[in-house]
Design a protein around this nucleic acid. Structure first.
Lengths: 228, 228
DNA sequence: GCAAAAGTGTTTAGACTACACCCATGC
DNA sequence: GCATGGGTGTAGTCTAAACACTTTTGC
């Protein structure tokens, strides 16, 4: 906080500030995370979560959005701060403090495409990660825990689904994140009782079977509520 | 994360990194926080939570401990990361990112004494705060929320109490933090059922009344458990 | 009429809430 | 014997969990 200066009046040396963002989605009933492959340098060809340095006079949230937009082509998604990692050895090239963010997207919204910044970009299963650069494996584990608990006590699942969805789709998002099967009747009863979702008049039919009612979230803004 | 450099090979400019620590305690059945009064500069005589800049090659936790020890004479307490605040306007003197930590102490352990770094240091009621510097009021509110919820689903109350305590003392810590009265019978039943505490053979007698059994925490390390 | 996914209720056990009186002590 | 805080049990309500069959559709 206090901008102490040394006896030369120069600012004291502090670590660099970066933001790194975990982008989660549920695809094919699996919890996935968007990873990038590093182009060059000490960590060449290692996978990492997208991130970059924060500019002075830029807020952390703005930096996170800017970096995601510039480097991964991802825009306008739900973002929430996760935690800050500052171990001096987390990056072998010098001390940087990373403020980790946590984002949820509905995969239908966008397909990753490599940019000039990265060697590759891809959705990876969260529980079979490739070798990760820095302390990113730890950050992902931490983020997964957060996601699991937020799903249980808030409505953020809305960020993982399209506007309209079936209750089966909603349930399988929960099952993919939590890694366990849920009781269909109890689940449906609960999400309607607590007004997490409400039904529309529309239906969707995929195969040769009964059409499913389409539902929407009662609120598409983060809100605390007991779900499981 | 990535240490981008500009075309001169100089490191890109990022904000300064500080840590600020919320030190909570329950004193006289009130939730209090340890505040310092700033000595000079733009925020002279405003109150703030103790903090300071992080050195390069110093971890955030180490920086927090060091600063608390140097500047407030507080050592060896429970510390946990709260969140990071990075609004460019949070400090009028320049952009700094503050990693806020959250500490709990048993007031019996120490009495604040002013150091050369501050004009004053004192315990203040959390719900009647003086005018605060920076965005510290917001940080305190955030920390109070965290404390309230952690008390409900973990055993961290141990950090607010001495080794041995009565159930009445334990209950009033909960009541002070949560700001509401709890049912004595239900509270006692619960904390023993879930083995949050266990009784000792010792008792304590204060006034002209029945002596109270003394209890200890079953575990004095952070652990998740449903309490309320 | 059959395959495939959607949809729907009831029972049971455990947890949480509300609530009032006796106990041990010092003076 | 009275004032003070310590200590205890039960009944009613609510919530969570377990569980299986009927419906609608396309072919």
């Amino acid at each position: 906080m206090k901008h102490k200066t040394n006896n030369l009046g120069e600012p004291k040396k502090t670590p660099a500030v970066a933001v790194d963002t975990l982008i989660f989605s549920v695809i094919d009933n699996k919890l996935k995370i968007l990873l990038i492959k590093i182009l060059g340098g000490a960590y060449k060809n290692k996978w990492a979560i997208p991130g970059g340095l924060v500019d002075t006079n830029e807020s952390l949230e703005k930096a996170a959005s800017r970096i995601l937009s510039q480097k991964a082509g991802v825009d306008g998604i739900y973002l929430e701060q996760l935690a800050t990692f500052g171990d001096p050895k987390r990056d072998s090239r010098g001390h940087s403090v990373s403020v980790a963010y946590f984002a949820l997207v509905n995969d239908k919204l966008f397909y990753p495409k490599t940019t000039e910044y990265y060697a590759d970009i891809a959705w990876k299963n969260v529980d079979t990660l490739p070798t990760m650069a820095f302390d990113h494996k730890k950050i992902i584990e931490y983020g997964k825990e957060r996601l699991m608990s937020k799903l249980a006590y808030s409505n953020i699942a809305y960020a993982l689904l399209p506007k309209e969805f079936t209750l089966t789709e909603l349930q399988s998002v929960y099952e993919a994140v939590l890694g366990k099967v849920l009781d269909k009747r109890n689940f449906r009863k609960k999400v309607q009782e607590i007004k997490l979702v409400k039904e529309t008049t529309r239906t969707r039919q995929l195969g040769a079977n009964r059409p499913a009612k389409l539902f929407i979230f009662t609120q598409r803004h983060p809100r605390i509520m007991d779900i499981l």
